[in-house]
Design a protein around this nucleic acid. Structure first.
Lengths: 213, 213
DNA sequence: TGAAAACTGGACCCTGGCGTCCAGTTGATT
DNA sequence: AATCAACTGGACGCCAGGGTCCAGTTTTCA
């Protein structure tokens, strides 16, 4: 009868995935698995014990990180004024980019040829889900009479696109965007302001509302 | 004295670059050079005669295509109403994506690690230049009193982002966006309309606070 | 017809990196 | 103490693909 004697580590699993995350971010798919093992302080064999092949390792890695990355994007809190929520959403998008969170996306793009399912998964759980949440928010605000959005998903994409714009491409190309924290705030606010100008419920009498926050 | 006897083909050079373009688009940087040679109907040696190494071939390829791809984006014609020009611009952006023009971008992203200069070049001559042209246009329209844009480059990025939005990522991930020609037109028009709502010269009495900065 | 350059095709070397194997070690469980 | 799994580390096979070499062929000019 097969007893479970040598317990399957688990701290090592973490170490492997962390190292893989690092190394793959740095050197892309070309990263040798031995380097990952070395940096994780683990033998190559151990990696092969867990994930039979490199592909599977990448898959596991993505699986683990997708959630953690997109989590902060998924809850547009119901603040007072929608513009604030939009600003917060934009800020969090920009922070993901600035903090190197796009290395996962780069990796997926590199693997897209060999791992189409992974590409689909990343897209569905990343940008798509994020926009979906935003769309929901826009719909609520519209019902509440604070905005006027006819096609929420469309508008959500517009907003996401405005915020990311070329920064997305820059990040993927490993070009520094050089955004300071202050600029992130400014940019996020500006995007939200412009967006509200296009989708505000009542164009003319707006005026007020600069105050709170 | 070194006479030029065997003339340096030229038709073959084209064939090589065309083939490289194809193969690299399909299989990414991993594409074997022999495949390129085969598809170009040329011996591998010939390729190595012209470009000493694979890297150089990629560089030459990019050099050649950057111009041709971005050309149509560089002339926002001076139509009657700015919204029409914006629509045309948006349409041409979307067409680049739909027609697989993004394989070059994908390639650059893949090579970004080893060829940072190439990444910079692609970005500068592609998205950045394109937005720059749009920004110029927005500035002109503002001066002409047909729009009200304070930061043209910023606004140009917003617009480009709105149009591309997730489609960019989808294309890079090799996911079909499934846009029909009709949808492209519709989407382009909608983006232009929304953008004009935010940047029109005269929203009724303009509310407040949108301005100064 | 001869010379010289561009080209072909195919053999060839070499490296890096995937994945395997195995002999030994550790450490928890009984 | 005995056992058995997880693990180490290092050697190994293997193969794709980059890049080289070369003997022979085509083309163009003189």
């Amino acid at each position: 009868m097969p007893r479970i004697v040598g317990q399957i580590d688990l701290a090592k699993t973490e170490a492997i995935l962390d190292a893989a995350s690092e190394v793959l971010a740095e050197r892309g798919l070309a990263a040798p698995i031995e380097e990952i093992a070395r940096r994780a302080g683990v033998s190559k064999q151990t990696i092969y014990n867990r994930y039979g092949c490199k592909t599977e390792l990448v898959r596991a890695l993505v699986e683990r990180r997708v959630d953690s990355i997109t989590a902060p994007l998924r809850s547009p809190g119901a603040e007072e004024h929608p513009e604030e929520t939009l600003t917060a959403y934009a800020r969090s998008l920009l922070r993901v980019i600035e903090s190197g969170g796009y290395s996962l996306m780069r990796l997926s793009i590199q693997s897209a040829g060999e791992l189409p399912e992974l590409a689909r998964e990343v897209y569905a759980n990343g940008p798509l889900r994020s926009r979906g949440q935003l769309a929901e928010f826009l719909e609520l605000e519209t019902r509440a009479g604070r905005m006027k959005v006819e096609d929420p998903m469309q508008a959500a994409e517009f907003f996401g696109g405005m915020v990311m714009a070329n920064r997305q491409i820059q990040a993927l190309l490993r070009l520094p965007t050089g955004l300071t924290a202050g600029e992130i705030d400014r940019l996020a606010a500006e995007a939200a302001r412009v967006f509200m100008r296009a989708y505000a419920a009542n164009p003319p009498p707006t005026a007020s509302r600069a105050g709170e926050e």
